[in-house]
Every structure is written in structure tokens, then in C-alpha cells.
């Protein structure tokens, strides 16, 4: 799957995007965030405050219970501030 990071999440993770295989046992957004958090380092720092993280799967906003599958594009970013 392709993971994308934006704004301060990108800065904390230390990269704009990465390709990862769907981790074993991960079926939901919440599960994916737990797995990323478990990688430690920048990923853990970026996910420290989960309430500040928004997620889009294949460019659609989703909640923590949404399904994720191999091949998905999953974007993590802070609350938006355009306009």
C-alpha cells in the first residue's frame, strides 16, 4: 500500500510517502495507525496525539473503523486549514 503524509505529519515522519506491504493482521485504519505507531521514531512521534490525525483512504475521508487493503492509498494529515 502507498502511505502519504502531509504538513507536520510529513515533517515528523520524515518523508512525504512510502510503500509498505499490508502488515499482517491489519484490516482497519485504527489497526494500521497502531502498526505505524509501533514502528517508533518519527512515526510514533507523528501519531502521538491520535485526535489530531485525519485519514483518507483512496482520497476519501474515513474514520478509524474503515477497512484498509493492500493496494490502497492511505493519507495521514492534520485537520485541514485551507480557505
Amino acid at each position: 500500500m502507498k502511505l502519504l503524509y502531509f504538513a507536520w505529519l510529513r515533517e515528523k515522519v520524515g518523508m512525504a510517502d512510502e510503500q509498505v506491504p499490508l502488515p499482517a493482521g491489519v484490516t482497519t485504519v485504527a489497526g494500521l495507525l497502531d502498526w505505524l505507531d509501533g514502528r517508533g521514531g518519527g512515526h510514533a512521534a507523528a501519531l502521538k496525539d491520535r485526535s489530531a490525525v485525519r485519514v483518507a483512504v483512496n482520497q476519501e475521508y474515513v474514520g478509524p473503523d474503515a477497512a484498509v487493503a493492500d493496494g490502497d492509498e492511505v493519507a495521514l494529515f492534520p485537520p485541514v486549514t485551507g480557505g
Binding site: P78, V80, T81, G82
Partner: peptide, 18 residues
Amino acid sequence: KTRAPFWKQEATGSGPHW
């Protein structure tokens, strides 16, 4: 303002901040 995926970073005298 609440849905379009844009993020603003301002540059001020104390450096950039989101």
C-alpha cells in the same frame, strides 16, 4: 475550510509554524 485538504504554514519572525 473544513474539508479541502490544504494546510497553511506561516513564516513569522519566530520561524515557520503550521
